[in-house]
């Protein structure tokens, strides 16, 4: 058969629809806590682990976690990476400057949270103590907890 050159078509039904997700009572309570600059976790009554952000079930015990508990605003940077790119809609672009994101374990929490770190890549150390930095104006949304910085 004769060789032909393919072209690309964009589908006539575009994939720019919107999904709406109910946040759920546990994450809603976490975000409401942000209005008072508080970080809430949920505690499992069986294994005693406190997870942050709070979620309804303890995966290991398969039980509902009924107790909310406020966590301290300080913790440990357990692990980090220096980002040199940003991913936007599946394409990576070089970042204007390297930046640090890492896993922060708040004191008393059983799990770590992924967070932005206000520290230069050269100064970031696994094991360093860090503290939460809030936006001046808090609105009860994820962005209120701006980043963590060395304590």
């Amino acid at each position: 058969m004769e060789e032909i050159k393919d072209t690309f078509l964009h589908p006539v039904v575009p994939l720019d629809f919107q999904n709406n997700y109910r946040v759920g009572a546990y994450l809603q309570r976490y975000l409401d806590g942000f209005k008072e600059k508080k970080i809430l976790g949920a505690k499992c009554s069986q294994c005693g682990r406190v997870v942050v952000p709070p979620r309804k079930y303890c995966g290991a015990c398969n039980l509902v976690m009924e107790e909310f508990t406020e966590l301290p605003q300080e913790g440990t940077l357990e692990n980090f990476t220096v980002g040199h790119v940003n991913l936007e809609k599946g394409q990576w672009k070089r970042a204007d400057a390297p930046y640090v994101i890492g896993m922060v374990r708040l004191d008393g929490a059983a799990n770590a949270m992924l967070a932005r770190l206000n520290v230069s890549p050269a100064d970031a150390r696994a094991g360093m103590k860090v503290k939460a930095v809030w936006k001046d104006q808090v609105e009860g949304e994820h962005a209120d907890l701006d980043c963590f910085e060395p304590a």
């Binding site: 692990n79 980090f80 990476t81 980002g83 790119v85 991913l87 990576w92 994101i101 890492g102 896993m103 992924l114 967070a115 932005r116």
Partner: peptide
């Protein structure tokens, strides 16, 4: 907007 396949793999 911090987690993606590459940042997770790096951690």
């Amino acid at each position: 907007k911090l987690l993606n396949e590459l940042s997770a793999a790096a951690l």
